[in-house]
């Protein structure tokens, strides 16, 4: 422990991040099993990579992990706003910088010498996944309780459409995770920081 190195990721962030990972993994794997009970598209997901054993078991996992996702997510956002970190970390987000970083990334020259700041692509990706999770939760509420959340149902274009929104929200989340985990693997120091804080 070197006391002169400032903490980059506060404790609440690290805890909520890893709890979120647990919730998201459970939700995705059990969600695939639920999908298989009545596939929207012409494919199914191999049962062996799903969670729950059967539809009833998958639903139990799904409707338990949803609480972890939502409560943990609310805590994450509350801390982010209360500390002013949200504005500092993710903004300003300038389109020009996003494009610049994208070009640099494609050339394999994206700088990561200063890990205390997120580059523009990271900012965009993290903001995207936060919005994506919100969309998944809202469409999920419609699939769960389409009568009680009638205004949300209308917003999502009806019950059947909410299922499609929920599905594509999941697909986008999976795409984010794949890229996210690859990036972390490329710069392993960020992983250490997300565990130890600095």
């Amino acid at each position: 422990m070197t006391p002169n190195v400032a903490t980059v990721h506060p404790g609440w962030l690290r805890i909520t991040h890893w709890l979120n990972v647990i919730a998201v993994v459970i939700l995705i794997l059990s969600g695939w099993r639920i999908y298989n009970a009545s596939p929207i598209f012409a494919f199914r997901i191999p049962d062996s990579v799903t969670l729950g054993g059967w539809l009833g078991g998958a639903l139990l996992w799904h409707f338990a992990a949803m609480w972890l996702l939502v409560v943990n997510g609310v805590i994450y956002m509350a801390f982010n706003f209360a500390t002013g970190r949200f504005g500092r970390k993710f903004f300003p987000l300038r389109p020009r910088e996003v494009i610049g970083d994208m070009v640099a990334a494609l050339k394999g020259k994206l700088a990561h010498d200063d890990l205390t700041h997120y580059n523009a692509l990271q900012k965009l990706a993290y903001l995207f996944v936060i919005v994506d999770v919100a969309v998944i939760v809202l469409s999920g509420l419609v699939v769960w309780k389409s009568v009680q959340f009638s205004w949300l149902r209308v917003l999502m274009g009806g019950f059947d459409n909410a299922r499609i929104v929920h599905f594509f929200g999941m697909a986008a989340l999976v795409a984010f995770i794949v890229v996210h985990v690859i990036m972390v693997a490329l710069v392993p120091k960020t992983f250490v920081m997300m565990v130890r804080g600095k």
């Binding site: 993994v25 459970i26 794997l29 099993r33 062996s48 990579v49 799903t50 969670l51 729950g52 054993g53 059967w54 009833g56 078991g57 139990l60 996992w61 409707f63 338990a64 609480w67």
Partner: peptide
């Protein structure tokens, strides 16, 4: 057996949670 970790223990290659207590917890949440 059905409400077990299924895929999860497959991912980790071991049974991480006692299945009976996991099921009890899930039923409580239900």
């Amino acid at each position: 057996r059905a409400a077990t970790l299924g895929g999860l223990s497959m991912l980790t290659g071991c049974t991480v949670v006692d299945e009976e207590s996991a099921e009890k917890l899930l039923m409580k949440v239900s």
